[in-house]
C-alpha cells in the first residue's frame, strides 16, 4: 500500500470503524452499568439539593482539597499539566479543528500556533513524568497493570506522531499533505486510542462525571463536605 493509500485508509474505513467502536463501546459501558439499577435511599435527607451536590462533586474534585496539598502531590499537579496540555492541542490546534469540521461541520476558533508549540513540550514531559512515577512510585506500581501502561501508550503515541506530522497536515480543507505517511500514521495512532478508550481506564473521560456526581449527591444528602 502506498502512503497515499494508507492515508485514505486512515481517513476512511479505519476512522469510521474506530469512531464506531468508540461511540458504541462507550455507550454500552455506561448503559451496562446504568441498567444495574440503584436502590432508593430511605434515610431522611439533610439536604434535598442532590443535583447541586452532584455538580459540586463534579467541579470541586477538579481541585485538590486544601487539606491534602503537599509536596507529595507532584503527580496530581503533573496530571493538571498534561490534561490541560492535551486539551489545548486536541481542541485548539487548527488542523484538528478542520478535521472535526470535515466530519461534523462544527468548527470553532483555533488557538494561536505558537501556543500549540509551547503546549506540546510540557505535555510530552508531563506524560513522561506520569510514566516514570507509575514505574518508580511503589503505590502506583502496585496499582498498575496492562491497562495503565497501554492507556499511557495510546495517549502518548498520537502526541509523538502528531509532532512528526506537524506542518504536514493541511490547514485548509482542500490542501493535500506534502508527505502523507506521517499524517496517516498520526491518524492511525489516534484511531488506536479511539479503539481502546471505551474498554480501559481512558474511559474515565466520561466515567468521572458519574463517579463524582454519585458521591457528590450522596455527601450532599448527608450535609457532609464534598
Amino acid at each position: 500500500m502506498t502512503s497515499v493509500g494508507l492515508l485514505e485508509f486512515a481517513r476512511g474505513p479505519a476512522l469510521w470503524f474506530s469512531l464506531g467502536v468508540l461511540i458504541a463501546g462507550s455507550l454500552w459501558r455506561v448503559f451496562a452499568i446504568w441498567r444495574l439499577g440503584a436502590r432508593v435511599d430511605l434515610s431522611e435527607p439533610r439536604s434535598t439539593h442532590l443535583a447541586a451536590g452532584a455538580l459540586r462533586g463534579i467541579f470541586a474534585r477538579m481541585l485538590i482539597r486544601k487539606d491534602f496539598r503537599n509536596s507529595r502531590n507532584l503527580g496530581s499537579f503533573n496530571a493538571y499539566l498534561y490534561h490541560i496540555g492535551l486539551a489545548f492541542i486536541v481542541f485548539g490546534y487548527l488542523p484538528h479543528i478542520r478535521f472535526v469540521e470535515r466530519l461534523t461541520g462544527i468548527a470553532w476558533p483555533a488557538l494561536p500556533g505558537w501556543l500549540m508549540y509551547v503546549a506540546v513540550g510540557p505535555t510530552v514531559v508531563g506524560l513522561l513524568i506520569a510514566l516514570l512515577e507509575r514505574l518508580s512510585d511503589p503505590v502506583r506500581r502496585l496499582l498498575s497493570g496492562f491497562d495503565d501502561y497501554f492507556s499511557w501508550l495510546v495517549t502518548f503515541l498520537p502526541l509523538l506522531t502528531g509532532m512528526a506530522a506537524v506542518n504536514q497536515s493541511p490547514a485548509l480543507e482542500s490542501a493535500a499533505p506534502l508527505y502523507p505517511l506521517p499524517v496517516a500514521i498520526h491518524l492511525l495512532s489516534v484511531e488506536l486510542m479511539f479503539l481502546w478508550l471505551p474498554f480501559g481506564k481512558l474511559g474515565h473521560a466520561f466515567l468521572v462525571f458519574f463517579s463524582r456526581g454519585i458521591t457528590g449527591a450522596a455527601l450532599q444528602r448527608k450535609g457532609a463536605a464534598i
Binding site: I33, L36, R140, K201
Partner: peptide, 26 residues
C-alpha cells in the same frame, strides 16, 4: 453488592494513588 453506584465507582479508578497519601495507615 455491585449495583449502579458501586459499579460506576469501581470502573472510574485511574490508579493515581492519591488515596494512599490520605490514609493514616499508609
Amino acid at each position: 453488592q455491585a449495583g449502579r453506584d458501586v459499579a460506576f465507582q469501581l470502573e472510574a479508578c485511574v490508579h493515581c494513588g492519591q488515596c494512599a497519601e490520605a490514609c493514616h495507615f499508609h
